[in-house]
């Protein structure tokens, strides 16, 4: 039995910063319930004695010399931005008037 409720989906959507509509929340509740029930089968074989693998091919090192190299120019970095002032990304106010 799945623990996916509409309230939980709405909470997850707010964490993920997606303004889902009520219809989407309703549909996702049903779909995610079925998916979570199916994927929960991993718990059958994931016993405490089995170590976790986060990466398929273990690599160590991978450090490069700490040298200044070619990076993007400000113009290049801003080229795809929805809004900018020529030197910085412009965003909606993060702090309110009183702050």
């Amino acid at each position: 039995m799945s623990e996916i409720t509409p309230e939980r989906v709405a909470h997850l959507a707010s964490l993920a910063r997606i303004a889902l509509t009520d219809d989407e929340i309703e549909q996702l509740t049903g779909e995610l319930g079925a998916i979570v029930d199916a994927v929960a089968t991993v718990q059958r074989v994931a016993t405490p004695d089995v170590p976790a693998t986060s990466h398929p091919i273990p690599l160590t090192g991978g450090m490069r010399p700490d040298e200044v190299g070619q990076t993007l120019t400000t113009e290049q970095a801003l080229a795809g931005a929805p809004d900018h002032d020529g030197s910085r990304f412009r965003v909606t106010a993060i702090l309110g008037e009183e702050q």
Binding site: I4, R8, V9, L12, A13, L15, A16, I18, L20, E24, L28, E31, L32, I35, V36, V39, A40, V42, Q43, V45, A46, T47, V50, P51, A52, T53, S54
Partner: peptide
């Protein structure tokens, strides 16, 4: 959207070990 919400769930506190952790063991 479906996969982002599912992933957010699998990584959330209290569920991480049961889902993401178990999947890594598999």
């Amino acid at each position: 959207k479906r996969r982002i919400i599912l992933g957010t769930y699998a990584l959330s506190a209290g569920y991480y070990d049961a889902y993401y952790g178990s999947a890594q063991k598999v």
